[in-house]
Computed example of a mutant assay.
Amino acid sequence: MSFNSKSLPTYEQLLERKDAPPGSSWGLFGDNDQVGTLNLINTESRLRGIASVVDGKAFSLDLPSTSIYPSLAPTRKPIAHHIFQRNDFHHDEWLDNFYTQYGSQIDGLRHIGHPEYGFYNGYDHTQFKPGTNTLSIHHFAALPIATRGVLIDVERYMAKQGLTLDQSSGQAISVDILEAARKSQGVEIQWGDAVIIRFGWLDYYLNRTDESTRANLVTEQFHPGLEQSTKTLSWLWDNRISIIAADNFALECWPAKPDSPFFTPGELRHEECSAHAGIMHRAIIPLMGMPIGELWNIDELAKACAADGRYTFMLTAAPLPIVGGVGSPANAIAIR
């Protein structure tokens, strides 16, 4: 299927849809689509990525497996790594408790559904079983994900402007701040780009917290991130971004702000209680069909970008081709 800037509606037009949930891209990439906005990656976006490479320096955007401890999510556990030998000159291994979305990760389209409309493209979530194809993460791996990447360094911009970015709170970062940071870097977002946002949260978590603080983050999860708003969704969609990623735990600010438009009526009346109450994931992943990257390790990349003023690069990500998979380690690389 072929697309161009005129063949896809604006986000405002998506909100007016009568043939599908308002604000959704359902059907725009085909009734049987499995990869959502990753469809926006094309030959041109890959060639732009290649053209962004100047000195060939590569950056891994993945954390080591032991970096996050204890777990940031109460339902996920650190991996248990086992090594065994068949003889003195052989080693093999296996993993227990391998939660694919534990560290640097990509949320697939099975990950989150909308409370009213369900999962992307209206697929029946009862199909989401191990070994089944519908919205499986292995479709991402098969593309593959390779396109131009754009870094927006919110933390550096705000520091230069004398603005406060509180890493220990759920501070909401508006589209106005995002756009101001982007413009200060002199970078444009183009069709099919992968956009990575640096809030500076991983640097805070890894280098400026003690063991007690990290332990409390499991039960008292607060971090800055994107503001929950339709303006944010419009920015994501109208920029034709293929995948959005960040260096915090959830991309958006956590927990959701009280004025988030994504609370269900029951949640607003305090009749329903959910750890996901009010989150924007419910619109980004199942309605828009946009994958989300979280806990990406981008500090070294950001330093290099700040040093020479180049904020674009070739970006590859190789999710594990697990048939039936919900998410995956990111296995992301930036080449400048």
Rank of each mutant, 00 (worst) to 15 (best):
E272K: 09
I196Q: 00
L206I: 10
T264N: 13
P64L: 04
A159R: 07
D124R: 01
L178E: 00
P224L: 04
T37K: 01
I292A: 07
N216M: 10
A307S: 02
G309D: 14
V218E: 08
I298L: 01
N32S: 08
Q105W: 00
V154M: 00
D55Q: 10
F59L: 03
N121L: 00
N239K: 07
Q13K: 03
L47F: 06
M1I: 14
S67V: 06
P21T: 01
Y102F: 15
T43L: 05
W201L: 05
T66G: 06
G118E: 00
H223Y: 15
S229T: 13
K257Y: 12
N4H: 01
E272M: 06
Y99R: 06
E44T: 13
L28H: 01
E12S: 10
I79D: 07
F89P: 01
N4A: 02
G122N: 03
T126D: 13
R182F: 14
C305M: 09
D176C: 06
H81C: 01
I243V: 15
T219Y: 07
P291C: 09
Y99Q: 06
D247R: 10
Q161R: 11
R46N: 04
F199S: 03
G131C: 15
G170W: 14
Q34P: 04
V175Y: 10
P144E: 12
I279Q: 13
R310I: 09
A283N: 10
A159F: 11
H91N: 05
F262Y: 05
V154F: 03
V154I: 15
D153E: 11
I322G: 04
T209C: 07
S24E: 03
P261S: 04
L251N: 09
Y157D: 02
Q228S: 12
I196W: 01
Q34C: 05
R240G: 01
F140Q: 14
S65C: 05
G118M: 00
T10L: 04
S104G: 14
L14N: 00
R240M: 05
Y311N: 14
H111W: 15
I152E: 10
Q161K: 11
A215F: 11
R46Q: 09
L61Q: 08
M158E: 12
A73N: 08
Q190A: 11
I285W: 01
S60W: 05
R240W: 11
I112D: 02
S242A: 15
P70R: 03
G103I: 05
I279S: 11
Y120R: 02
C273M: 14
H90Q: 09
I68R: 02
I177W: 11
P265G: 12
Y117F: 00
S168Y: 02
N331T: 13
K18L: 07
K129N: 12
S260Y: 14
I244N: 04
E188Q: 13
F263Y: 02
G30P: 08
E267C: 04
S7Q: 08
I137Q: 08
I137C: 08
A306I: 03
A318K: 03
L15Y: 04
M290D: 01
L233Y: 13
E179P: 11
S168C: 08
R156W: 12
Y120G: 01
A146G: 08
S45R: 03
L15M: 02
A275L: 15
S328G: 10
R336V: 13
V187W: 04
A250D: 15
S52M: 10
N331S: 09
A277G: 15
P286I: 01
W296I: 15
I284K: 02
H114W: 05
Q190Y: 09
M158V: 10
N97R: 14
D193A: 06
S71Q: 07
K129T: 15
